[in-house]
Simulated assay, not measured.
Amino acid sequence: MGKPTVYIDGQVGTTGLQIRERLARRDDIELLSIADALRHDTTERARLLNTADLVFLCLPDAAAREAVTLIENPETRVIDASTAHRTAPGWVYGFPELDRGLRREAIARATRVANPGCHATGFIACVAPLVEERLLVPDATVPCFSVTGYTGGGRSMIEAYEAPARAAALSAPRLYGLSLAHKHLPEMRAQCGLDVAPLFVPVVADYPRGMATSVLLTRDLLRRRVTAADVRCVLAQYFAGEPLVTVSPEPDGGMLAGNELAGSDALVLHVNGEDDQVLVTALFDNLGKGASGAAVQSMNLMLGLGETCGLAV
């Protein structure tokens, strides 16, 4: 049996380039490519979409939905990196560590997988286990802020931040999503089993890669009174044995840097606080576990390859 074939539709975008970089170093798959002149040719794209064993869609939402309609081969498996299918029926949400790892089995069997959003990844890692373990009440409005490097904004934001003569405002952290209706909210709510959307504020800062997503837990959000040590223990037990998601064993005495895991495909949870106020923070790379690394992790499972092959652990 030959090597599985993989095609990236949208290979010149930030996520597509990162996936391609991870796959180009591997000899256990065959990476299909499209000529630059044919990147917008529907006929050639459709040929590759139906030829590959597995396809990554690294496209805007509308284009991702259109790409799915071009796939007629029932054997072609799809990982969509856009927001288009993250809460769609028939699509498996690509977070293997959920359901105490049982999600891993669903991804391995799936033909359609939706890759998580970056902010959503951090929030879900902090919150979903606490809801599942009946510590956090599902009707709580969970407050969350998430700081990301500017590469999470794609090519236009990268160019703005890296321009020789750039706006002075880019030197300071900037809040966005001020309508409190960020596009990741539906998946955050759905995957955590929450009755209401979280109260979520994203922040972009002047560094390229890395993310710090923080959830604040107070007594009124929890079923019982707990300490930071209690929450840390619940999360550590939930993610025990996971190769890419771990829990820091001790409280942090100083500061947490948003770029601490830049270049890594792992995610580390930190739990801090005192009395009945607890801060849970997920540190990871917005282009790693927050995007391309997570997509390759799902690909490995779907193709029966080592789960962490090609990833920086």
Results as ranks from 00 to 15, higher is better:
102 L>R: 13
141 T>M: 12
30 E>Q: 13
143 P>H: 06
76 T>R: 06
19 I>E: 08
13 G>I: 13
142 V>S: 02
25 R>Y: 07
74 P>W: 01
88 A>F: 03
60 P>F: 11
106 A>T: 04
94 G>N: 01
119 H>D: 03
66 E>Y: 09
124 I>H: 00
10 G>Y: 09
93 Y>N: 02
26 R>S: 06
144 C>T: 05
112 R>W: 01
131 V>A: 09
139 D>M: 09
16 G>Y: 06
123 F>T: 02
105 E>A: 12
61 D>P: 07
94 G>R: 05
145 F>Q: 03
82 S>D: 13
112 R>N: 10
111 T>S: 15
25 R>G: 08
59 L>W: 15
31 L>P: 15
30 E>L: 12
137 V>H: 14
39 R>H: 14
116 P>F: 00
24 A>P: 11
96 P>D: 02
108 A>V: 07
18 Q>F: 11
119 H>I: 02
61 D>F: 09
85 H>C: 09
93 Y>F: 15
53 D>A: 14
83 T>A: 10
12 V>W: 12
34 I>A: 04
126 C>V: 04
24 A>Y: 08
67 A>H: 05
123 F>I: 07
28 D>W: 07
5 T>Q: 11
91 W>I: 02
56 F>E: 14
74 P>Q: 08
120 A>R: 04
60 P>S: 15
113 V>N: 01
113 V>R: 02
15 T>C: 11
72 E>F: 03
69 T>E: 09
62 A>Y: 09
4 P>T: 11
1 M>L: 13
10 G>Q: 10
75 E>L: 13
39 R>D: 07
73 N>I: 02
142 V>C: 01
132 E>V: 07
1 M>K: 13
141 T>I: 14
47 R>F: 11
108 A>F: 10
66 E>G: 04
135 L>M: 10
36 D>S: 09
43 T>C: 10
144 C>D: 01
7 Y>S: 06
70 L>I: 03
63 A>D: 14
138 P>S: 15
17 L>A: 15
61 D>W: 05
99 D>Q: 12
125 A>P: 04
88 A>R: 05
21 E>M: 06
90 G>L: 00
2 G>A: 13
58 C>G: 10
48 L>T: 03
138 P>L: 09
29 I>A: 09
29 I>D: 05
136 L>A: 08
144 C>M: 05
25 R>E: 12
10 G>N: 11
67 A>I: 01
65 R>S: 11
54 L>V: 07
8 I>T: 04
132 E>C: 05
41 D>H: 10
42 T>M: 08
18 Q>W: 04
72 E>Y: 00
4 P>H: 12
50 N>K: 10
147 V>D: 08
6 V>W: 13
2 G>V: 10
109 R>F: 07
31 L>S: 13
7 Y>W: 11
